[in-house]
């Protein structure tokens, strides 16, 4: 069992769903990421750590801007590993890395997975790597005990959902809408159908829903639809951006927001 699977089982037993919080490694500065992660880990069940990329095609404006800030601050894949080690000293919360394929490929897929495991990472999400191109990633991730989390979109046909679940481990990432990442006022209804389809086919792999989720109401709605986890990214990154020059305020704003989101994952 992986740290991620254990987390989902524990939550299931206590009648909760997973709150997965996304932050961009190195935003606004690499020195701040460990304390941001630590603050978030008090409430988040899983931390999703983005590796900045120059051309993030699946991301909306908020996360694009975070990537630009991180890159300007000199963030590198190597530093991401150092940050993960740093976070790991403070908390056992599972850490999933989300990164575009080119920096990982350039680093070397085998070397990347080995490093990720060494510094205490638990899973990998690559938003521009569909399962057809992922043999190497899946192989080396497995060898190193890293979970591979693939995405399922509203346009994914039924037979593909089954195959994606088969190469995923830890959880599967359901994209709640047609579009890029970014907070939305209301969430779309498509998640419900996707969740049902995944649960029917593979009751053993928990579906977590992301994209557009920015409020406790959204979290409750998605959970009522049957999700085992919710992923919140842009709304958190936006708070970091708002307070980027005042770290203390940033931390307390993050704590307050994450506490609300976590509370929404607890069924009454």
């Amino acid at each position: 069992m992986s740290r991620i699977s254990d987390t989902f089982s524990d939550l299931e037993r206590s009648g909760e769903c997973a709150f997965i919080a996304y932050i961009m490694a190195g935003d606004p500065d690499p020195s701040l990421t460990p304390s941001i992660a630590k603050a978030i880990a008090q409430y988040a069940d899983i931390i999703e750590l983005g590796i900045p990329f120059s051309d993030p095609i699946a991301d909306g404006k908020t996360i694009q801007a975070a990537a630009e800030r991180a890159l300007r601050a000199g963030m590198t894949p190597q530093q991401t590993f150092e940050i993960i080690s740093e976070i790991r000293k403070e908390t056992d919360t599972p850490i999933v890395v989300m990164g575009y394929y080119n920096p990982i490929l350039h680093f070397g897929v085998e070397r990347f997975m080995k490093k990720l495991a060494e510094c205490g990472g638990d899973g990998i999400i690559i938003p521009d790597l569909p399962m057809e191109e992922a043999d190497e990633v899946v192989r080396y991730a497995k060898e190193n005990g890293i979970n591979t989390i693939f995405l399922i979109a509203p346009t994914t046909p039924e037979d593909r959902i089954e195959k994606i679940c088969a190469c995923s481990s830890g959880f599967v990432y359901l994209v709640s809408l047609l579009g890029v990442t970014g907070a939305r006022e209301a969430i779309s209804g498509v998640a419900k159908t996707l969740i049902r389809s995944v649960v029917e086919k593979r009751p053993d792999i928990p579906p977590a829903v992301g994209f557009g989720i920015s409020k406790p109401e959204h979290v409750r709605e998605i959970i009522a639809d049957g999700a085992k986890g919710v992923i919140v990214g842009s709304a958190i990154v936006r708070l970091i951006a708002e307070h980027k020059d005042e770290p203390e305020k940033m931390i307390s704003a993050l704590e307050e927001f994450c506490a609300e989101l976590k509370a929404a994952t607890r069924k009454k």
Binding site: L129, P130, E132, E133, L151, A153, P154, T156, R160, V175
Partner: peptide, 12 residues
């Protein structure tokens, strides 16, 4: 070559 795109586009 290949298809290194977000899952949303695979069907398209």
């Amino acid at each position: 070559g290949g298809q290194y795109v977000p899952e949303v586009l695979m069907h398209a």
